[in-house]
Computed example of a mutant assay.
Amino acid sequence: MPERPDYTALTRGQIAVLDRINAGEAGLPVLQQIVRLAQETLGGRGAGFAEYAADHGRIVAATGACTPAIGRRVDRADTRLRDGRTLLIPLGSLNDEFAKQVEGGDVKRMLGARCEVGDTIVGSLHVYFGESDDEPGPEHHAVLELLAGYVGRLYAARDGLPVHSSEQARRQENRDLWVAVTSHELRTPVTVIKGYADTLSNHWDTLGDIGRQEAVRIINTRAGELARLVDRLLSAASEDGDVGASPAGPFDLPEALRSAVEELPADLRRRIVLDNLPAELPKAYGERDSIATILTELATNAEKHSPPGSTVELCAGADEETLRFRLSDRGAGIRPEHVERAFERYWQAEGGDRRHHPGAGLGLYLVRRLVERQHGWVSLRPREGGGTTAEVRLPRA
């Protein structure tokens, strides 16, 4: 870290940010530029911004060593930034989920600044420094406070930034999640039952006894599965709309992903390339049964927004805290301002093959809720060379 902030970079960056704001631009692309400017000006190893809702935060922009944390839901329990506009905190004493995802190993302290609109703290801007870096001085604090003020100005405009959740919104989200889970879980058995019922109705005479018996057997099996699903899904929703979860525990993520791929529709399954699914990975901790739902929604979204017949690559890996898997397509690519909006319920991007893939905009919303229920997180980002990468991270067992 330089002894003083890079004021030349700061001046250039401020002009660029102000030009975009004065031109009417707002939202995540400008926020990401401010975060990048904070890292560049202060000489940090990484930087990030956590947006605050009523009871939690979410990392919506990050650069450098902090990039893997984008999309993560974080705790707001640490209230020390309420006492001063900026604060230097050793990572070892910090209740901060950012710290767990900083790559490089030598990042030891964080300089944070609260971002305000009036009397409301809308989030916090963080820059991370290494063990060999000098301690940030008063000028570093002042620069970060200045940049935090720009973030506050963006949130005052409210255009294109994630929406804060109220308690009423949380309850509505839980009800929507229950509806989305129910719809997804029931889709397969209902489709199979209807298909075989149509076959019996239209081809009774040509099927023969063996064919008719097999169709009836499958209908009976799927009807039993459907009855069990209805019982489980109805009992999962409590009176306040909270959604129950299947038991969590250690599971083999690559094996679960391979099984989930086998359950995909044939046309979509043929497009999936198992690019790198190592046979030996640490166990993930979560709900194994949810992986099929999560993968189906992400793969369907990739199929919807990429050319017919193009491949979708699936890979998995691990670090010290998490296991991850990624689905990468070669479609048009998600716009930076949509990487958070895509997870809002009912929101749908323009384009995509809606004729073959109609929907209500609940797929990615469902994915985020299911992943966060397991203390993981999910994010989208444009893929280098074109396309979109969806990444899911789950805790290690």
Rank of each mutant, 00 (worst) to 15 (best):
R354M: 04
Y346Q: 15
G244M: 05
P278T: 08
Q172D: 14
R270Y: 02
R354N: 11
R187D: 11
R45F: 03
R187H: 09
L10K: 10
D78A: 11
T67E: 14
I291S: 05
Q172C: 10
C66P: 00
L147R: 12
G13Y: 02
A62S: 08
Q33W: 00
I70Q: 09
A26E: 11
I15D: 05
D55H: 08
R212E: 10
G386T: 04
G195C: 06
H357C: 02
T63N: 01
V17C: 09
I15K: 11
L81N: 09
T322P: 00
A349R: 15
R114A: 08
P68I: 12
L277I: 03
D289M: 07
L87T: 02
L186N: 10
R258W: 02
F325I: 06
V371M: 09
D134S: 14
V392T: 12
E303H: 09
A16K: 09
H338D: 15
S124L: 04
R232C: 07
G92S: 12
A279W: 04
H141Q: 14
G333P: 01
T41M: 02
A26K: 03
S290F: 07
A248K: 12
R383C: 00
N95V: 13
P250I: 03
Y346N: 15
V273Y: 03
S328N: 02
L277Q: 03
A236S: 15
R369P: 01
Y155D: 11
A148C: 06
E287S: 13
V17S: 08
E344M: 11
D289C: 07
D133V: 11
L42E: 04
H184G: 02
V127W: 00
G152S: 08
D96W: 11
V339M: 10
V216P: 00
P90E: 12
D106Y: 02
G376K: 04
D134N: 10
A50Q: 04
R381A: 13
E116K: 07
D55C: 00
A16T: 10
T191H: 07
V392M: 07
Q348M: 15
Q348G: 07
D242Y: 06
E40D: 15
I70V: 15
I210V: 12
D275F: 01
R76M: 09
W347P: 08
Y150L: 15
F251C: 04
L274D: 04
Y365K: 09
R326W: 01
G46E: 04
G84D: 14
L186I: 10
G123D: 07
R288S: 11
E103H: 08
A245L: 13
R373M: 08
R324G: 06
P5I: 10
T63Q: 05
P138K: 05
V107E: 08
D267L: 10
G13K: 05
A148P: 07
D133M: 09
G351E: 07
A157W: 10
A77I: 13
P282R: 03
E263S: 12
E145M: 06
A69Y: 03
V102R: 05
S379P: 02
E214T: 13
R393S: 11
H140D: 13
A260F: 02
G105E: 13
K194F: 00
I272N: 11
G352L: 03
G152A: 10
L281V: 01
L226P: 05
R270S: 14
A62Y: 03
R175E: 13
A9C: 06
T79K: 13
R36F: 05
A266D: 13
V181H: 01
I294T: 12
P282W: 03
